[in-house]
C-alpha cells in the first residue's frame, strides 16, 4: 500500500511554484518523518506560505512533485484534504461568528451531526481555555485567543498532518508558550506538524529537523544541533560604557572567542558568535581585566539574521524584485 505508515509524511522533489515571473518556490526537496515536528525557517517572502499552500493542495505545483501522507497533491487532492489540517498565517476563522459557532461549523463540515458537533466544540473550547469566550464574536478575541481557536479548528478531527504557518508571530511570550505546549502535546499524540517560523528559537524549541529557506530554496537542512553547529551555539551581545573602547574590545573578544565579531549600528555595541558558553564567560571576564567597562551583556540564541549571515555570508535580504524596485526608485530620484 503506497499510503502505508512507512512513507514519509511529506516528500517533495524539485517542488516549484511560479507566479508570473516570480519563483516563489524554486525547487524544494523535503522529507518529513511521520510523527515529527518539522520547522521551515525563513525571512519574509522566502516562500514558506507558498510551500504550505502547495502541500495543502491550495496551489498546483508549476513543476516537481509533492506527496503528502503517501498521496500526490496534484493527482489526489481529496485524499490529502481528508487527512491534513491547515492553520494559515492569517486567522482562518470567521470573525463574525462566535468561537463556538466556528468550531461547530467546522465539525458539521467534517460530518459530525448536530449534537455531536456541539459536544466536540465544547470539548475543544474547554481544552483550549476558551470556554469563557465561547459565546463571544471572534472579532473581540485577543491575538492569543484567536490563534488557539484557529488551532482548535484544525483539530476538530485529529489530523495526521497539521500545517501551522507562523503560529506565534505577533503573540506575547505567554500565548507563544501556550501554542508551543499545544504543538508538543499534538505530536505526543502521533500527529506530524509542519511549522513555519521566522524565529530560530521557535524552530529550535520544537522541531526535530529544520530547513532554512530563502528565495524559494532550501539553503540548509538538518537537526537543530547541526544547524547550530554551523552557526555557533549562541550569540554574545556586549554593550560598552565608552564607545571609544570598541576597537579594543573587538580585538580582545576575537582573540578570546576565535570567531568573527560584528560591530552593531549602536556605536557602543558588539555582537560575537560563541562556539561554547563557557568561553563567553571567560571573554567577559577578560574585558573587565583589560579595564574595558561593560554596561551590559547577554548570551542569546542566534537570530534568523545571524543564521543567515553564518550560512550565506550576507544578511537576509529583501527579494530581488523589492531590491530592483528600490534601485529604480533610487535611480529616479
Amino acid at each position: 500500500m503506497i499510503a502505508g505508515a512507512s512513507t514519509p509524511a511529506v516528500e517533495t522533489v524539485g517542488l516549484r511554484k511560479t507566479f508570473g515571473a516570480k519563483h516563489a518556490v524554486d525547487g524544494i526537496d523535503l522529507s518529513i518523518r511521520r510523527g515529527s515536528i518539522f520547522g521551515l525557517l525563513g525571512p519574509n517572502g522566502a516562500g514558506k506560505t507558498t510551500t504550505v499552500r502547495l502541500l495543502a493542495t491550495l496551489l498546483k505545483p508549476t513543476a516537481g512533485t509533492a506527496r503528502v501522507l503517501g498521496h500526490d497533491v496534484a493527482r489526489e487532492p481529496e485524499a490529502v484534504r481528508r487527512r491534513v489540517s491547515l492553520t494559515g498565517q492569517f486567522a482562518s476563522v470567521d470573525e463574525d461568528l462566535t468561537g463556538r459557532e466556528n468550531l461547530v461549523l467546522i465539525a458539521r463540515l467534517l460530518g459530525h451531526g448536530g449534537r455531536d458537533a456541539r459536544a466536540r466544540a465544547d470539548e475543544l473550547l474547554a481544552a483550549f481555555d476558551l470556554d469563557d469566550a465561547a459565546a463571544k464574536q471572534v472579532r473581540t478575541y485577543s491575538g492569543g485567543m484567536r490563534r488557539r481557536l484557529d488551532i482548535a479548528a484544525s483539530l476538530v478531527t485529529t489530523p495526521d498532518l497539521l500545517f501551522l504557518d507562523e503560529p506565534t508571530t505577533g503573540l506575547d511570550p505567554r500565548s507563544r508558550n501556550q501554542v508551543w505546549e499545544i504543538v508538543r502535546l499534538l505530536v505526543d499524540n502521533g500527529t506530524t506538524v509542519l511549522l513555519t517560523t521566522q524565529y530560530l528559537e521557535e524552530a529550535d524549541q520544537l522541531a526535530e529537523r529544520i530547513a532554512v529557506i530563502d528565495h524559494g530554496r532550501v539553503i540548509a537542512e538538518g537537526t537543530s544541533a547541526t544547524l547550530k553547529a554551523s552557526v555557533g551555539t549562541g550569540v554574545l551581545h556586549v554593550r560598552l560604557a565608552d564607545p571609544a573602547d570598541r576597537e579594543a574590545a573587538r580585538a580582545l573578544l576575537a582573540a578570546e572567542l576565535g570567531g568573527p565579531i560584528h560591530l552593531d549600528a549602536d556605536p557602543a555595541a558588539l555582537t560575537a558568535t560563541v562556539p561554547d558558553p563557557a568561553r563567553a564567560a571567560a571573554a567577559i571576564a577578560a574585558t573587565g581585566a583589560a579595564g574595558i567597562r561593560v554596561t551590559d551583556f547577554s548570551l542569546g540564541q542566534p537570530s534568523l539574521d545571524e543564521v543567515f549571515f553564518a550560512l550565506t555570508g550576507h544578511p537576509a535580504e529583501p527579494s530581488p524584485d523589492d531590491e530592483s524596485a528600490a534601485a529604480t526608485a533610487a535611480g529616479r530620484s
Binding site: L109, L110, G111, H112, D116, E123, A127, T157, N189
Partner: peptide, 15 residues
C-alpha cells in the same frame, strides 16, 4: 484536557 480532546476516535465521513 488537550490530550483527552485529541484522543483518536472514529471519524465521521465528511459532509
Amino acid at each position: 484536557a488537550i490530550r483527552a480532546a485529541l484522543k483518536p476516535r472514529p471519524q465521521p465521513k465528511p459532509a
